[in-house]
Write a protein that binds this DNA or RNA. Structure first.
Length: 400
DNA sequence: TCTGGGGTCCTAGGACCC
DNA sequence: TCTGGGGTCCTAGGACCC
């Protein structure tokens, strides 16, 4: 099992787009001093304590004067991610994308293909194949990559983190526990800030301590995940490569489609008068993405966050649809239910789930559905903003 | 520490049915 | 009438990941 990920991926792509950024401290996520969070930080700026997930404001305080802050280019990242995957697939047919910058590769059965005279064992063979793979990504795309190789998925993930930057780390069978033991608990996938706090309260800070912690303690903190967390901490995790993310997965026989589609916006300031128009825009985008995927939404959830970060969600099971006006009508009802406080709103979001395959992509008699497809065609030719609902348009004209 | 936007998965309580 | 237990679906919230 191999976990391959692209080092400081967004920063690396930005450097391909603008070579003057090479060697300089780079923060991706937003303009200096603005709102938002850091989505990627170069090693040069990490030296000053800037980390992914940190607010742009705090990063602005910590970063040196010559640091460059860039908002990011989502389409370019997706494109480079796809090209990196194509390279990975030349080395093994069993590849699962875990995120835009992370792939899991199963090399079992490929040993003979890559074996060279003088290879000490299969591990040595696979390690060399993985080095060839990261080298190919670097040579062909200009992107630095790292990889971890181990007997389980979680161990491979941890190993790829230890291998950075631009390294390959092989954790041989039998050495997993010793490799994990000294690491802080946060290094293990599945342990986040909340669990970290709870573990610390129980006197547990290293993975060795997790590995030997009483079952009852872990169950209290991790619930059903307890057994999995403990075996991962011992290096005994599953060697199942896992599934492709549901968004890319095939539908099931009943026509159900895994996954969800969501769109949300945080505002500098918002008033109830503009909320309906914001929701209109969100529904248009979500509905458009649903039509692109050929699915109908069976559930709609509205998310509302007040300025004090109090977050409310209201959802409803609906007649499967991909018509934005239908979604908008329900979204408005949910909004009225959810908005119980007078406080200003900081965020509005729309998510659709319980997706089903749209059996009739181009219905002859349903005006609403056909109009949606027509809108998508216009947008294909003239761009997303060529067509809008009237409510969205009013907002755009005012520049909101 | 004052927190974006895209997701997945689990839990707990209530409704409803038999 | 105040009383069982099991099953399933729905809804709201939260932890986690990148």
């Amino acid at each position: 099992m191999c976990c391959l990920d692209l080092d400081t991926f967004f920063v690396s792509v930005e450097r391909l787009l603008d070579p003057s950024l090479v060697g300089r401290p780079v923060v991706v996520g937003g303009a200096r001093g603005g709102r938002g969070v850091v989505t990627s930080a170069s090693y040069e700026v990490r030296a000053f304590g800037v980390r992914a997930g940190m607010s742009i404001r705090e990063a602005s305080d910590r970063a040196p004067a010559d640091a460059v802050f860039v908002p990011g280019h989502g389409d370019e990242y997706a494109d480079y991610s796809r090209r990196a995957r194509e390279i990975v697939e030349r080395f093994s047919p069993v590849v699962v994308a875990a995120s835009i910058d992370e792939h899991y590769i199963d090399f079992r059965g490929c040993e003979r293909l890559y074996r060279r005279p003088g290879d000490r064992d299969d591990d040595a063979t696979i390690e060399r194949a993985v080095r060839d793979c990261t080298a190919a990504i670097h040579r062909e795309l200009g992107l630095p990559a790292s990889a971890g190789i181990a007997t389980s998925k979680s161990m491979a993930k941890v190993a790829s983190g230890l291998a950075k930057p631009q390294g390959v780390l092989m954790v041989r069978a039998g050495t997993e526990a010793a490799t994990l033991a000294p690491l802080p608990v946060r290094k293990l996938p599945g342990i986040g800030p909340v669990a970290e706090q709870k573990l610390a309260a129980a006197g547990i800070v290293t993975l060795a301590q997790v590995a030997s912690a009483p079952e009852a303690v872990l169950r209290k903190i991790f619930g059903v995940y307890a057994a999995g967390i403990r075996s991962s901490a011992r290096g005994e995790g599953s060697d199942d490569i896992g599934r492709e993310r549901p968004a890319f997965r095939e539908h099931d026989p009943e026509g159900g489609v895994a996954g969800s589609i969501s769109n949300e916006r945080t505002f500098v300031e918002s008033t109830p008068e503009t909320a309906g128009e914001v929701l209109s825009g969100l529904c248009e985008r979500v509905a458009s993405r649903a039509r692109q995927r050929g699915v109908l939404a069976g559930q709609l959830t509205l998310k509302l966050r007040y300025v004090d970060f109090d977050t409310i969600s209201r959802g409803r099971t609906i007649q499967p649809t991909s018509v934005d006006t239908e979604l908008h009508r329900v979204a408005l009802e949910l909004y009225r239910e959810a908005r119980t406080r007078e406080l200003p709103i900081r965020l509005l979001g729309i998510a659709i789930a319980k997706l089903r395959l749209d059996a009739v992509q181009l219905p002859l008699f349903d005006g609403g559905e056909r109009r949606g497809v027509a809108v998508d065609r216009i947008r294909d030719r003239f761009g997303y903003h060529a067509v809008h609902l009237a409510t969205t348009l009013r907002r755009r004209r005012r520049g909101v």
